[in-house]
């Protein structure tokens, strides 16, 4: 069975891309071994303190807490993109593994298929 890597590169709320990407990851993890890599502004999906009640959009960041329960194998992010935004992994809602360039390249190599969102 193919393993799949989901790569998220969009910030949350400005468009529905991030939310629909997460939907795909949750579906994928029901079928096969899946991991997720947050790159670029995608790392901003993970920050704590998102409050969308007044805006009226869905606060899908609450679903990230379920990734482990869904069996998502590795939850990783780009360390350079994290640092470039002045963030630290302690800013995140969940435990995330920051990876350097070599670590991210290895993560891509070790999965059979990559889906970008």
């Amino acid at each position: 069975m193919s393993s799949m890597l989901f790569v998220f590169s969009r910030p949350p709320h400005g468009s529905i891309n991030a939310q629909e990407g997460l939907d795909a990851l949750l579906m994928g993890s029901a079928f096969t071994a899946c991991s997720v890599l947050f790159v670029g502004d995608g790392v901003l999906q993970l920050v704590t303190g998102q409050s969308t009640d007044a805006l009226g959009t869905k606060n899908f960041s609450l679903s990230f807490g379920a990734l482990k329960d869904y069996g998502v194998t590795r939850i990783a992010c780009s360390m350079p993109d994290l640092l470039a935004r002045g963030l630290h992994k302690s800013d995140f809602l969940i435990e995330v593994e920051p990876l350097d360039a070599a670590g991210m390249q290895a993560l891509i190599r070790h999965h059979d298929k990559v889906l970008n969102f």
Binding site: M1, S2, M4, D23, A24, M27, G28, A30, F31, T32, K113, V114, L115, N116, F117
Partner: peptide
């Protein structure tokens, strides 16, 4: 149809190409 069709197609194909 459902999102499962995306996952099923991706798993069973030799190559997946996304046009984003």
């Amino acid at each position: 149809s459902g999102l499962g069709q995306l996952i099923d197609a991706s798993i069973n194909a030799d190559r997946v190409v996304t046009f984003g």
